[in-house]
Design a protein around this nucleic acid. Sequence first.
DNA 1: CTCAAACCTGT
DNA 2: CAGGTTTGA
Length: 428
Amino acid sequence: MARHIVRGKKQTKAWASIFCTRSQLRLDVTLPAGQSFRWKETAPGHWTGVLAERVWTLTQDENAILYHVYPVVPENGTGSEEKMECGECHLSVVGGNQGCELQCDSRSKPRLRKSNPKARSKAKDVEDMRCIGQEEKGGKLGNEAILKDYLQLGVCVENLHEDWTRKDPHLSQVAAWVSGVRILRQDPLECLFAFICSSNNNLSRITLLVNRLCEAFGRKLLQLDDKSYYSFPCLHRLAGEGVEEKLRGLGFGYRAAYVPGCAREVLARGGIDWLHGLRQTPYREAWTQLCSLAGVGPKVADCVCLMALDKTDAVPIDTHVWQIAQRDYPACRAHGAGKAPSSLTPRMYRFIGDFFRELWGPYAGWAQSVLFTAELKQFKELVEKEQREGKSQRAGEKLKTVRQKKEQDTRAECKKFKPMERCCSKDK
DNA sequence: CTCAAACCTGT
DNA sequence: CAGGTTTGA
């Protein structure tokens, strides 16, 4: 039976690496903190999950992200996946639709959309992948390119921290403790439905529901030890007959109706292409469009905008952030108090978001993620643990200069990337 | 436009 | 009792 990989003396060739310091990215605070619900810590410091229809394990050391991509199941496998074929999507593939090819047609075209020369123009794919430092080879996107895009390594969080220091002393103070938090560039479809599951819900239960959704309607990709990994289901499956009933049985509660409801509405608007197209739409307009979908309100719309649609200034305000705003930002307290309602009204929601956009600028959403992460119980425990271990206080003195040099290199590396020009619209 | 109450399940 | 969205006042 296939097993989860663990980094050690053996299998060193199984790992590929990307240069990246811990202050640029910390997997342990970024992957489990409520952005994506699909990464599981399968060994200490090792995170396994599904990304771009493949199963990955990620880990890191001081200066690199290490990743392993598992070989996919043979094309003509046992036939047990037969039932997971999606006729609708197959038709779409014939019609030249992208996305569904990835999702459903596992046997005839198990590869990437790039493998089909007719599927999409190369230019469009490259355009869709920002943050990529180098060209892909052999006409298909390499794993490194996929991972760099997902982790948005073209955005330098250290430079952002520097910028915030000038703008907001409080955030600056928090950011000093919280390094390596970044926004993941997620798949819009997965992000949308995962956050529909998140409404009125907590992290552990959202994770449970999202995984059940994939298990019920996704395609089985691979089994490692006793855990199976599934692709995220395609729109057609989510829009299918009997989906609501099935999800009710899986404990979705009233959210069960939102899933097929939203899927049908997205299909009616142009399906997966429409959804991806929102990446080119200004923030406020994309937000308004999302809010009109079943089960999507202001907060979920902002999550999707920030985490999948490149709107770096979208600021999702959940109860955590609402409390932080009231507690640490007098301006918000003044507006909230008075004769204020104790709940977060739509009006108040807009006010807080605009307040933070004004304060933090075009990357307000990234700033919010720092405050949010610092507030999480699991993060506080992590920092406490590290302090107890007294991480290299004196012993690391020698290493320090080496590290500083490395960090300078990172910074130089970051500056090579062009700053992003889109998605910072100010219209209301 | 603005806001309360209902929705559903786990702690 | 917490937690976002929908619905209806």
